[in-house]
């Protein structure tokens, strides 16, 4: 079972203040921490679980800048065999469509049974790469996947729908699966594995090794801005004792 996993390094913005940079089209990154995109860690774990069952090898690919090599090394430490960085700095206006075309141009020459991607990157929230890449490669796909059981070349697949309802599908391999969080419990990389991964060779692919013509973006960010505020909570201020007192009174009144 040869599996390709597409991963991305993203800023962790859930608890951080996010500021627009001077271009107006990107964010200030210097004060943010970065990590592997959440659903990508589940995609990688799923690949490692399948490899433990069937053997084979795992290749992780990112279209990312030099810093994202750290993300690739963590993936190697968790069980990936090969890692490829396609140099994002060689390309501009990377929307989901263009990124998928770049990935396709590399993956089409590789030998694989399955491709796993995360179901959504938390930075741009497109959820486009997986199904677009599958279409460009001419293979079937299933998105928002919460279970994969492979027998020969058929994957019994669960997709998660609204309300937690699941859809059971049969997908013929080779196929692409966009992995939803919660499908497994991702492992941590051991320190020894991290040290070992630090010495591993990464493969780099630049723009000159790709047919650059014909790579198109669909969409262009013109401007980033703070969401207009339509409603704002009444914020209770004071010490924990004071805010708790005020809140307890509000709660008493409401119930």
């Amino acid at each position: 079972m040869n599996i390709i996993v597409c991963i991305k390094r993203v800023p962790q913005t859930a608890e951080a203040e996010v500021r627009v940079d001077s271009s107006g089209k990107d964010i200030e990154k210097d004060r943010l921490t970065f990590d592997t995109n959440e659903s990508d860690t589940y995609a990688l774990e799923e690949a490692v679980l399948q490899k433990e069952k069937f053997g084979g090898s795992i290749t992780v690919i990112t279209v990312g800048d030099e810093d994202s090599e750290e993300t690739l090394r963590i993936a190697l430490a968790k069980g990936a065999d090969e890692a490829i960085r396609i140099k994002a700095e060689n390309f501009d206006e990377l929307d989901g469509f263009k990124t998928a075309q770049i990935l396709q141009s590399i993956i089409k020459n590789m030998d694989y049974d399955a491709i796993f991607t995360g179901c959504m990157a938390t930075d741009d929230a497109y959820s486009q790469i997986g199904p677009t890449l599958a279409e460009l490669l001419g293979i079937p796909h299933a998105s928002l996947v919460t279970k994969i059981e492979i027998n020969d070349d058929i994957a019994q697949t669960h997709r998660e729908l609204e309300g937690g309802l699941l859809e059971h599908l049969e997908i013929k391999l080779p196929a692409l699966f966009t992995i939803q969080t919660g499908i497994n419990v991702p492992r941590y990389a051991s320190l020894i594995a991290i040290r070992r991964a630090a010495r591993k060779e990464l493969k780099h692919i630049g723009a000159d090794e790709l047919a650059k013509d014909g790579l198109n973006s669909n969409s262009f960010i013109e401007e980033l801005f703070h969401p207009p505020i339509t409603k704002i909570a009444e914020i209770l201020t004071g010490s924990p004792d004071e805010t708790s007192q005020k809140l307890a009174e509000i709660i008493k009144e409401k119930i």
């Binding site: 913005t13 627009v20 964010i27 938390t122 929230a125 013109e222 980033l224 703070h226 969401p227």
Partner: peptide, 18 residues
């Protein structure tokens, strides 16, 4: 052109399509 949300809902983007 469309409005989308990014970065955990902390920013909106105006996106123009080709």
């Amino acid at each position: 052109s469309v409005t989308r949300q990014m970065y955990d809902g902390k920013l909106n983007s105006k996106v123009v399509l080709k």
